[in-house]
Measured scan of single mutants.
Amino acid sequence: SEIVVAMYDFQATEAHDLRLERGQEYIILEKNDLHWWRARDKYGSEGYIPSNYVTGKK
Results as ranks from 00 to 15, higher is better:
Q24L: 08
S45W: 08
F10V: 05
W36V: 06
M7F: 06
S1D: 13
S1A: 13
E30F: 07
E2W: 15
F10R: 11
N32L: 12
E14Q: 13
E14Y: 13
H16D: 12
V5C: 11
Y8D: 06
G47V: 03
K58Y: 14
G23V: 03
D17G: 14
I3A: 05
Y48P: 00
A6N: 03
L34F: 10
H16I: 08
G56T: 15
D9C: 07
L20Q: 01
E30N: 10
Y48R: 12
E14N: 15
T13N: 11
E2C: 15
E14T: 14
A15Y: 09
A12C: 10
M7D: 06
E25N: 06
Y53E: 01
G44P: 01
E46I: 09
I49Y: 01
K58T: 14
E14K: 14
L34A: 14
P50V: 03
I49R: 00
E30D: 13
V54D: 01
K57P: 10
Y8C: 15
G56M: 13
E46D: 05
A15S: 12
F10A: 03
Q11A: 13
K58Q: 13
L34G: 12
F10K: 08
S51Q: 06
W36H: 05
D41R: 01
G47K: 00
E14F: 12
T13M: 12
F10L: 08
Y43P: 00
V54A: 02
A39W: 03
M7S: 05
S1W: 15
E46A: 04
G47A: 02
H35A: 09
F10Y: 14
L18T: 01
D17M: 15
I3Y: 09
I3S: 06
Y26Q: 00
A12K: 09
E25I: 10
L34K: 14
L34V: 13
G44Q: 04
G56P: 15
S1V: 15
G44E: 03
W37H: 02
I3M: 08
K42D: 04
T13P: 09
P50M: 05
S51E: 04
L34T: 13
E25K: 08
D33E: 08
V54N: 02
K42P: 07
D9A: 06
Y8F: 12
W36T: 07
K58H: 14
T13C: 14
E2H: 11
D17W: 15
T55P: 02
Y26N: 00
I49H: 01
K57I: 14
Y53H: 10
D17I: 15
E14H: 15
L34N: 13
K31V: 05
P50Q: 05
E21T: 10
S51H: 07
L29R: 01
T13D: 08
I49N: 01
V5P: 01
W37I: 03
R40Q: 08
G47C: 06
Y8P: 00
A12T: 09
Q24E: 14
A39V: 12
A6W: 03
V4F: 09
Q11N: 13
I28K: 00
D17N: 15
K31N: 07
G47F: 05
E25A: 08
D9Y: 05
K31R: 10
K58R: 12
S51M: 07
H35R: 10
E21G: 03
D41S: 04
R19P: 14
G44N: 05
K42T: 07
E46V: 10
V4L: 05
E30M: 09
M7Q: 07
Y8E: 08
E2N: 10
Y26A: 00
Q11T: 12
A39P: 00
S51F: 06
K57M: 11
Y43E: 09
L18Y: 01
E30C: 11
G44A: 03
G47M: 00
G23A: 04
Y53S: 07
M7P: 01
K58G: 14
H16R: 13
V4S: 02
E14V: 09
L29I: 12
V5Q: 05
V54Y: 02
D9K: 04
Y43I: 05
G23K: 03
Y53T: 03
T55E: 12
I49V: 09
A39K: 01
E25T: 11
S45Y: 12
Y43H: 11
